[in-house]
Amino acid sequence: MNFREQLETLADIKHSFVEKLSETESKTLRTSKLEILQLNITRKCNLQCKHCHVSAGPDRQELMSKAKFESILELLDKADISTLDITGGAPEMNPHLEWFIRSASGKVERIIVRSNLVILKEEEFKKYIKIYSENKIEIVASLPHFTENLTDRMRGSGIFSTSIEVIKELNTEGYGKNGTGKVLNFVHNPVGAILPGDQNALETEFKKRLMDLYGIHFNNLFCITNMPLGRYLEYLKKSDNYEDYMDELICSFNPAAAESLMCKNTLNVSWDGKLYNCDFNQMLELEADFEKFSNITDFDPSYFEDKMISVGNHCFGCTAGSGSSCQGTIE
């Protein structure tokens, strides 16, 4: 489905997000202080996961250019941004990543790379284990479930066992262990047409099972709701789960979660430098409304605050239950 077809599908639900939002105290969503810069530096990936809202894969060619990265470094010098959140696709497949990490280190408090782990087993990319370690990069890795069967059903055959091998290597580097300053967080996305359960309960179970079975350490588990976008939206439609899934998202709308959404303090930048309020808006080509600024090359960070956030019915995915963000549950 292209972005127009996705928007048309999302329009076909009982209540609109705008309508629900208008019933809350704040009525609309507006940006606050800019704290997180999230970069989608490529849509190329060595995997083709069933839940991928980016619809990333080996055939995608989109890569952020060095010139765009240089603009971002300039922005980091003039803006008080605490966190750089690098995602893709597989970020490692952008040839400028190593240079960019080394250049950006020291300009922000925290650099996150969202890695699919298995790419770190490939000859060309295994160097990143050391690069991440040397630069104290926080690794956020997808691990939908602690069983091989469920993880492989979502991410592809053999992915779970390779992920375990890579996690063990990261643990040897000190990742996931208290006191090392090397953070390894996992992301749990439900394997199927369901919303995630209680994050604390799931984290306890993941830690117990992964330690008992594989001797693995990690820091936190982030539970992230599968967004009704990209391949996941296609799955919902094909499996006749779309209506029930959207109904559950709408019924679980939580005004408190809407007050703390990540789009308030995050600027999302696509591979070509375009500006969005979040990663999901990027996939639907709903650009952020910063009036005269539409690209990172000319963006003035002082202009970020108190601007209307672009929303759509997919936003129900972030406001359901305890809420969902790239850092897991909101509340």
Binding site: N149, L150, H188, P190, I194, G197, D198, L202, E205
Partner: peptide, 10 residues
């Protein structure tokens, strides 16, 4: 059943 799936119960 849904709550079990959400809690990662196989």
């Amino acid at each position: 059943t849904n709550e079990s799936l959400k809690l990662g119960i196989t």
